[in-house]
């Protein structure tokens, strides 16, 4: 069979599968039952004003743990494939010199970007944000650092220590929730829920967000660092 015909057939089949979804979609005048429960009881259950963060961290915390594990596996496979041994490294590499504007600007901007990432990460239960967003912003700060200095070396020991510690702490909070309270895995009621709208409120959620953000940020930075270092291979 002709390959182009098969491709067209598959794409058409995908379109046919997706079309009823589009046809039956009415733009939604009311929420689903689950969404209704979350929007009505979210604050009294978790104490967080950002409902998306309360779904990610508390209601669906186990799924988040699984997703962090997938990310960790992907990062491990990348570092296994692209690691450069000392003998394979080229001695001198010719790169384009970085202009003074970029190097000065990166020295000023990288701390500010990391600060913004930390702000988003800590305020995840109040305003839009949380662990994943803060981690992604911290990783883009690392990217700017690499663009300003292509030969920059990340300290792998520190990165691995931060990553493993925050991963273990994430699971530990979940297990403490099972052992101490009767709330189940990743229970939010580890600490007092407090008044909604304050920085220290929503129980264990800020703590979980911080560990999640550190883990995601270091993992993405690590992936970037491996890609940059693989440029030095013969």
């Amino acid at each position: 069979m002709d390959k182009k015909f098969m491709v067209a057939l598959l794409v058409a089949a995908m379109a046919v599968i997706l079309f009823p979804l589009f046809q039956s979609f009415e733009g939604g005048t009311q929420l689903s039952e689950l969404g209704q429960y979350y929007t009505q009881n979210g604050v009294s259950d978790t104490g967080a004003t950002n409902l998306v963060a309360s779904v990610v961290v508390t209601y669906r915390g186990l799924d988040t743990l699984g997703e962090v594990t997938i990310l960790f596996l992907a990062a491990s496979i990348i570092s296994f494939f692209l690691s450069v041994s000392k003998d394979d490294r080229i001695e001198n590499r010719t790169v384009m010199s970085v202009t003074e504007i970029l190097s000065t600007a990166s020295q000023t901007l990288v701390p500010i970007i990391v600060l913004v990432g930390a702000y988003i990460l800590v305020n995840g239960h109040l305003t839009p944000g949380g662990g994943f967003q803060g981690g992604a912003i911290i990783a883009s700060g690392t990217l700017l650092m690499f663009l300003a200095n292509p030969n920059h070396k990340l300290n792998h020991t520190i990165i691995h220590v931060i990553e493993s510690t925050s991963g273990i702490a994430f699971v530990a909070i979940g297990v403490i929730g099972v052992l101490m309270m009767d709330g189940g895995f990743l229970s939010n009621k580890l600490f007092d829920l407090g008044t909604p709208g304050e920085v220290i409120s929503a129980g264990a959620m800020p703590l979980i967000n911080i560990f999640l953000g550190l883990k995601v940020g270091t993992e993405l930075s690590n992936v970037l660092g491996i890609f940059v270092e693989s440029q030095n291979e013969k």
Binding site: G42, T49, N50, L51, V52, V55, P128
Partner: peptide, 25 residues
């Protein structure tokens, strides 16, 4: 957006938070 105001009161109609949380990850 499914974010309450500072006092914890719902101000208006919200969109569904569940798909947003899934897409985030």
């Amino acid at each position: 957006a499914p974010i309450l105001d500072a006092e914890g009161n719902a101000v208006a109609k919200f969109v569904d938070p569940v798909p947003q949380a899934l897409v985030l990850t």
